[in-house]
Design a protein around this nucleic acid. Sequence first.
DNA 1: ATCTCTTATCGTAAAGATACGATTGATTTT
DNA 2: AAAATCAATCGTATCTTTACGATAAGAGAT
Lengths: 101, 101
Amino acid sequence: MKRTLETIEYKENTEALAKFAKALAHPTRIAILKHLESQSCCFTGDLVDVFPLAQSTVSQHLKELKNAGLIQGELKSPKIKYCINQENWNIAKSLFQNFFD
Amino acid sequence: MKRTLETIEYKENTEALAKFAKALAHPTRIAILKHLESQSCCFTGDLVDVFPLAQSTVSQHLKELKNAGLIQGELKSPKIKYCINQENWNIAKSLFQNFFD
DNA sequence: ATCTCTTATCGTAAAGATACGATTGATTTT
DNA sequence: AAAATCAATCGTATCTTTACGATAAGAGAT
C-alpha cells in the first residue's frame, strides 16, 4: 500500500476500535468467537472439525484473534485450550457500545 | 485468495456482523462515522479538510461505508451531504450488542 | 530413543484493501 | 456556451489478507 508521508493521528479509542473491528471482519472469526462463547472454551481440533477449512487456516484465524487480544490459549498437552479473554472482551464491548451511542 | 471449493454456510447474522465489522475495520472510517455522528451530517469536502488524505481516498472510504449501508448520500448541488443511515445503524448496533451479550 | 498426536509456522498463490494522481461527469455560475 | 466547483471513478502501485499443503515443534506414550 502506498502510504501517505505523514502519519495520521487518530483519537485515543479510534485505533483500538478499528483493531477490534478488523479482528471481527471475517465470518469465520465471528463464528469461532460465537463457538467459544457457547462452549466457554475449546481446542483447535474442535474448530477444524466444525469448519471446512484446513487446519493451518483455522490456526491462522486463531492467531489473529489472539493478536487482537480477544482470545487466549492455554497448553493442555498435547492440545491447546482456547478461551475468550474476558478483560479485553469487555474493553471491546464497551468500545462498540460507546461508539453506537 | 485461493478459495476453498465448498462455500461455507454461516449462521444468519454471522455474515452481516462480519460485513459491518469490515466497514469499521479502518481508523479513517471510524473517524468519519464519529464525525457524522457529532455533526449529524457533512459534505465530502469537509472530510477532505479534516483528514490528510487525497480526495479520491476519502471518496473511496465513503463508498465502502455506503456499500455497508452505514451512511447515505444526498445531492445538495453542487455538494453531496452524507448522513448516518439510522435504520442500518440500528441494525449494526443490535448485532454488536447481541454478539457481546 | 522413537513414534504419535496436536498445533504452529513456513512458503506460496490469488484476491482484496489502501493510497495516489488524473480524468470524468454533473450541476451551477458567469 | 464556457468556466468553475465538487465528488466519483479510473488506472495503478504496493501491502495485506486468506487460503492451501508441507514442514517443524512440543509433549506424551511406547
